[in-house]
Amino acid sequence: MNIEPVIRIQNGDFDSAAEVAAMTAGRYDIGAVVTFTGLCRDECGKLSALELEHYPGMAEAEIGRICREAAERWLLQAITVVHRHGRIEPGENIVLVATASPHRHAAFEAASFVMDFLKSNAPFWKKEHDAQGRAGGWVDAKDSDEAALERWKR
């Protein structure tokens, strides 16, 4: 289906409800909206903030490619992805994926697919700041994230 994904990479916070409202405004054909919100964890008090670096231009382009692939696999009426960069503290939002479809199955699957590919393929990197506020190491990529892509193979 030919839809134009809404993709924003921004420093500031987002409002999931407002994003969904914008996605569904004036439409009477949408039957299901699924939203996924990723938040910053404090890792049991060990982490005071994450610093997210991204590749400007490529981040938008890559998320666009992932969204278009999702729209080819499932009947989607809208997709919104918002990803933050810069300093993010525990409890704050990091990423939003919202998908709209006539039926729930496509909306759930597409949101999951977009998140799985975003994790491994969208050019973002997280650096941890410890409880004392010192910049620590870069977060390592997890094999489990790479393995999550396997289930979408066809």
Partner: peptide, 10 residues
């Protein structure tokens, strides 16, 4: 050409 470590977004 961009060179970088494995990505850790999301």
């Amino acid at each position: 050409i961009g060179l970088f470590p494995p990505m850790t977004g999301g």
